[in-house]
Design a binder for these strands. Structure first.
Length: 364
DNA sequence: AAAACTATCAACCGCGTAAGT
DNA sequence: CACTTACGCGGTTGATAGTTT
């Protein structure tokens, strides 16, 4: 037995609403309230089905609807909520006053989702997409800038890209962030490396409560973690990173994002130099400072030039000075351009470190 | 200037479910 | 308890505006 149609569609109009229809609907609801949507069009004199009237009212005509571009704060909220709720647009909309589920859904599909994909982040799981990365390019580029780094591409050639072991390695590398405060191999973490490889300031974790990531497939992190590494697939908080510069040399204890992943609950993070491109909207500026020839510098070059193809993300010539040695620049936290928002996004994503003395053979 | 392509978003469709009978 | 009805939600479509070639 088929489902009964919501209304008799014979003779009912479809398609875009005219201003006259809008006016009729508004006038009726202002006088009588929506009441029964099924009966509303008949009572209001509209040649529409109730469903269409409800949609038009809730998504467009409702007086409390906020229209116009989404603010950065709203966008932050959407991504954070989506990481927890998934495609529960109505639930997300309930936490964004004045925004409708339809509007949020459209905005996600047309803006946020694409941006995450461009950054190599799976918009479903909010985790890095390794299939999106050209590992060889990353490492080749990195090695050019820092000859001390191993050159995977020269070691293994382009076939390395199809080697599942190397993909696992990439998984690990991309997931690596902060070293554990125990079991550290001192050879991997000499003070210079710590100075140079600390990529971003630690996020102020207590600003945003840890988010549950029910959708993440943790299989991608099954690669055994080498001694001295910890893994922090820190993507969920990619937008919530603090822009408060942490310039102290102290270690900062933080909590891993995902307690269910079996990853480190507490990691000690060294904070030598700082790179903080986060997006705290309460803070008027975002500060980035990189040591010359740092690993992060080279890695950023690799990402921006070859992997994501988003030169504009890291170094938009028209608006931003490229990251270079000892350069410091400010990005307005009220940034509204796509590129500037991506900067904020990628700042937290690109948080991992690789010891210079890492022996690739240990992985193979 | 025009065609082709892309992005956006209002609106539609079908399904799940709560409420009513 | 079974069935019907209405509502709300999420996925998808299609018209249109904007951009590129």
């Amino acid at each position: 037995m088929g489902r009964a149609p919501c209304c008799d569609k014979n003779g009912l109009k479809k398609g875009p609403w005219t201003p006259e229809e809008d006016l009729m609907l508004i006038n009726y609801i202002q006088k009588h309230g929506p009441g029964n949507w099924r009966n509303l069009p008949k009572n209001a004199g509209l040649q529409r089905c109730g469903k269409s009237c409800r949609l038009r009212w809730t998504n467009y005509l409702r007086p409390d609807i906020k229209r116009g571009r989404f603010s950065f704060e709203e966008e932050e909220t959407i991504v954070q909520l989506h990481s927890v709720l998934g495609n529960k647009w109505s639930a997300i909309a309930a936490r964004l006053p004045g925004r409708t589920d339809n509007e949020i859904k459209n905005y996600w599909n047309t803006h946020i989702r694409k941006r995450l994909l461009r950054m190599g982040i799976d918009p479903v799981t909010h985790a890095p997409r390794l299939d999106f990365l050209d590992l060889s390019s990353i490492l080749a580029s990195s090695s050019l800038c820092n000859p001390s780094l191993f050159n995977l591409s020269s070691l293994f050639g382009t076939q390395a890209l199809f080697n599942p072991e190397l993909l696992r390695l990439a998984s690990t590398l991309l997931s690596l962030n902060n070293k554990q405060d125990k079991n550290i191999n001192p050879e991997w973490f000499n003070s210079q490396n710590l100075q140079e490889n600390q990529l971003c300031s630690n996020q102020v974790q207590n600003q945003i409560p840890p988010l549950v990531q029910p959708n993440i497939n943790h299989d991608q992190f099954q690669t055994p973690i080498p001694e001295g590494f910890s893994m922090q697939p820190n993507v969920t908080n990619l937008i919530s990173s603090s822009s408060t510069p942490i310039s102290t040399q102290e270690n900062v204890n933080t909590s891993a994002i995902n307690p269910s992943s079996g990853l480190n609950e507490n990691v000690a993070v060294s904070q030598p130099s700082y790179l903080d491109c986060g997006s705290n909207t309460n803070n008027p500026s975002v500060v980035a400072e990189l040591p010359e020839n740092s690993f992060f510098q080279s890695l950023l070059d690799g990402y921006s030039d070859q992997v994501f193809g988003f030169d504009s993300v890291i170094s938009t010539p028209s608006s931003l000075t490229p990251l270079n040695s000892s350069s410091t620049y400010n990005v307005s936290s009220t940034s509204s351009t796509e590129d500037e928002r991506e900067i904020s996004y990628c700042s937290s994503l690109l948080k991992f470190e690789i010891p210079e003395s890492l022996d690739i053979n240990d992985f193979l």
